[in-house]
């Protein structure tokens, strides 16, 4: 009989936690950048789903994993831009727009899948490509650390670089300053000549790019096909992660990792025959706690304004 610690303190577990975190981190970065610009993108779930399908379709027809990834990113960018057009230009409520996008993605992906493959469930009949795993030279040979850090999918490393990139853009560049000021106080930004609409467009488009990479990871990294509804709530958990991270890059990354670890734990602890239901609620308990933190933050904000 193995004990809890034996199971958790293994490189396999850490490796699995990083893998589970990857799509969450991408989506959470997407949530972060749009939220900081004051346009909450709740269509991440749908964007991921569409990008996941796009990755499979583009890579299957071109036989190139890179084009598949670019296709996924492009579709992510386009759908997010569409959301931006409806909410910014045509003044739809951004939440309603996001909900509509999620419903559209849910049915639309199945429609496209059926149109292309004659199948409504999975794209198993399309010979799509997968993105490669990267073995980092030198580090891969270090015991334990190498086993944990090396050998992940290329998108996992891109996710980590993206987190650093988002931090840099938000904190160190003029664009970041504008994004933050637009989100913080639209009118003040306008008064100093910032084009609010343009900045929000850029932020939403970027969030689409990140969600697109998250989607590509699901269908081209995690598994090698698309299946209906495969984002399975990750877009929502990402929103919670962003909220729990209080809108900071570090906080968002850490809470994504927390959700990832909770999920990996729920997978691994089943080995101990602990009732599966109990373990599976871990990520959701974490979500509720996260949303609570979000609510408290919002209330305080309102109080501060009042």
């Amino acid at each position: 009989m193995r004990s809890l610690l034996d199971i958790i303190l293994t490189p396999d577990f850490a490796f699995s936690a990083i893998r589970v975190t990857t799509p969450l981190l991408f989506a959470a970065l997407g949530a972060l950048i749009s939220d900081r610009a004051g346009a909450a993108n709740i269509g991440l779930e749908g964007i991921m789903l569409m990008a996941a399908l796009a990755g499979v379709v583009f890579s299957a027809y071109t036989q190139s994993a890179l084009i598949g990834l670019l296709g996924a990113i492009l579709i992510g960018l386009l759908t997010a831009s569409m959301l931006a057009y409806f909410t910014l230009k045509l003044k739809t409520d951004v939440i309603l727009g996001g909900i509509a996008l999620n419903f559209f993605a849910n049915g639309g992906t199945i429609f496209v899948l059926y149109y292309l493959t004659g199948d409504k469930g999975t794209s198993a009949s399309l010979a799509s490509m997968v993105l490669p795993n990267i073995h980092i030279p030198v580090i891969r040979n270090i015991p334990i650390l190498g086993e944990i850090v090396s050998g992940h999918n290329v998108l996992t490393y891109i996710a980590i670089l993206s987190a650093i990139g988002v931090w840099y853009v938000l904190e160190k560049t003029a664009l970041g300053l504008r994004i933050r000021s637009v989100g913080e106080n639209e009118n003040a930004a306008k008064s100093v000549g910032v084009n609010v609409m343009k900045i929000r467009y850029i932020a939403l488009a970027l969030s689409g790019v990140f969600a697109g990479m998250g989607g590509a990871f699901l269908s081209m990294g995690y598994v090698s096909w698309f299946s209906r509804g495969m984002s399975a709530g990750r877009g929502w958990i990402a929103l919670a992660a962003e909220a729990m991270g209080r809108g900071t890059v570090l906080g968002t990354t850490l809470s994504s990792v927390l959700f990832g670890v909770a999920d990996a734990l729920s997978n691994t602890l089943q080995l101990l025959n602990i009732p599966a239901e109990l373990i599976r609620i871990l990520p959701y308990v974490a979500t509720v706690v996260g949303l609570l933190a979000y609510a408290i933050r919002e209330t305080n904000k309102r109080k501060a304004k009042g």
Partner: peptide, 13 residues
């Protein structure tokens, strides 16, 4: 019944 990524994770474990 519809989350293949979760299925893979459990399978790997």
């Amino acid at each position: 019944f519809g989350d293949p990524a979760k299925g893979k994770e459990l399978g790997l474990v």
